[in-house]
Structures are given as C-alpha cells and as structure tokens.
C-alpha cells in the first residue's frame, strides 16, 4: 500500500471501496466520483457519490436518466472529499454514521418493516 504522505491514487483505491464511518459502521460503497477541472488547471476530486442512481450509471450510461426519473435523487448521496480520512479498499470517513444521510435506508427498514417481526433486537 502506498504511504499516505505521497499517495499516488488510482481508481482502484477509490471506486467500489467500502465506506466506513468513524464508529466503524458500514454505510455503502463508492459508486462514483465527482471531480472539477478548475481554471488553474487543477483536476480536483470534489465528492464521493453513492447510491443506486450512480450505480446504475456505472452499468450503462444510458440507464442513468431512467434511474434519475424513477428515484428522483432520493437515494443519491454525496460525501465531500474533506470527510475522507484515507483511501483504499476501505475508505474511512471522519464523521459518525448518523451524520451521513446514506444508510438511512437501514434505519427506515428497521423502523418500518423489522419492527413487526418478534426478536428484532430493538
């Protein structure tokens, strides 16, 4: 693994990596990235994107508008670069799980579906 001081990153270190929060919870995987090509010539990674819309776009770019139409951005989440502690097969994030909107599906399922099943551990 490259030393984090002078890391030369490749897509492999970023794409599809596991997103892990500071409290060691898994909230998904990197589905896509958003980068800016600035006027001063710098190409900068701005956001990590996760969610089914971005994933659909990775499979086939034609499908992306369809996914946007169906899901309307509700499940799309952006995590700014400033939240990233390090890259690699597991991308560690600085904040706790509750600070991120992604992973709310887990909570929703726990609160609305699993609660009806005895023994769910709530």
């Amino acid at each position: 693994m490259p030393d984090s001081e002078e890391q030369l990153l490749v897509m492999r270190d970023i794409m599809d990596s596991q997103l892990e929060t500071r409290d060691k919870r898994h909230i998904g995987r990197v589905a896509d990235i958003e980068a800016e090509w600035r006027d001063d010539g710098k190409f900068v990674l701005v956001n990590i994107v996760t969610g089914p819309e971005a994933l659909t776009g990775r499979v086939a770019s034609r499908l992306r508008p369809m996914a946007r139409f169906l899901l309307r951005g509700h499940f799309e989440h952006r995590i700014p670069l400033s939240d990233v502690e390090n890259f690699g097969p597991t991308v560690r994030l600085r904040k706790k799980a509750q600070d991120y909107s992604v992973g709310q599906s887990d909570r929703w399922i726990a609160d609305h579906i699993l609660r009806w099943i005895p023994g769910n551990g709530r």
Binding site: R29, D106, R107, A110, L114, G119, N120
Partner: peptide
C-alpha cells in the same frame, strides 16, 4: 457487495438490509 452492515452476530436491527 453493496457495502451494507451484515452479520449473524449482530442483532437484526443492526443489519436491517442484510436481514431483509
């Protein structure tokens, strides 16, 4: 594969999508 919480050693509500 999708990066969710998972595990049999967790309570169901700790890994909802996995259990669903």
């Amino acid at each position: 594969g999708f990066g969710w919480e998972w595990g049999e050693n967790k309570k169901p509500v700790e890994a909802p999508r996995f259990n669903l």
